[in-house]
Amino acid sequence: MVNSAKSTLLLAVCTLFGAAIGVAMMPWIFPRAHTEMSRTSVLLTALRTDRNVPPVVVLGDSAVMAGVDTRQLTPAHGRFGAWNLGSTGQELSESLLIADALPDSVKTVVIGLHFDKMTKPATAMPRNKYVAYVMSGYRPSPEVVRLSEGLENQELHELLASNRLRVMMWSRWVVRAATDLSVRRSIREDMDLTRAETDLYHPSPYTRAVDAVALDHLMRTFDVRSNHFKTQTDAVMLLRGMHDILSRRGKRVVFVVLPEHPRRRAMTTAGFYADAHQWVTNMRGEGIDIIDLHDALDAGDFIDHIHPADRGAARLTSLISRSLRPDGA
């Protein structure tokens, strides 16, 4: 019994030892595993190491990645004077962290928004994403921690307060994510995933529009909107907080409500847009610069239900560029 118990204990220790090896391997595995979050590392490394970080940056989710070609944004601001720092699923809370990491050379920050995101209660970013920030060397500033502390939903604050070992434990998701992405990369020849990971100007992975069947399916994935646009306290607080922090750092902040597919607009009541318009007007009244471009594109400008095609990107970028000019011409 004693011998058997000893050998069982040894095996239990071996299992824990194996798990510990896994934990210890994470700092080595993480930067080498290509996942959708690898872009975060690319962005943070560029912001930290590039001596010529341009004066204009654009933040937002994959609609910004596909919809803003900063090479076309630059004529008004000099050659290659803007970076597209969009990343997949980047919400306001995540944009806040990138904005927090911006160097002094950045003078204008354009942040892409969706009306729907302002109505959702969750302002926390997925834990997996935060892991990518910490593993890429990001540490939140006291201002950002204070802002997160004031939010009703404390998830973001809890993330920002978590210690590095804990974050390293969470980082294990990259193993599965990298497996999936490597297979996907090899079979999706129509998607330029390397571009989506590394391009700092127009990181759109899409090379062709989806067909009608897929578009129908994707349209069904949208949540049903209510008849009224009702913002969530935390989302607005985050937006105001970002504006204040960046303004104090001497940066101009412009929020852009991103274009919606005409079929999505057709699924929405006039009451929703009337409320949303009123909210935009109110925010402008508070001195927050918001451009509402939700109806700026046609169906042909989209590649799918959300992402602008190259033609849409050209139109959207031109509209943003115009708004950034002091005269708005």
């Binding site: 040894l10 095996l11 071996c14 194996g18 798990a19 090896i21 896994g22 834990r127 294990r172 998701w173």
Partner: peptide, 21 residues
């Protein structure tokens, strides 16, 4: 025992790496 211990180390590693967050 040695072989079992090796299996345990690998299983421990896999458990950590594939255990959903």
């Amino acid at each position: 025992l040695g072989a079992a211990a090796a299996v345990c180390i690998v299983t421990g590693m896999l458990l950590f790496l594939l255990w959903p967050s």
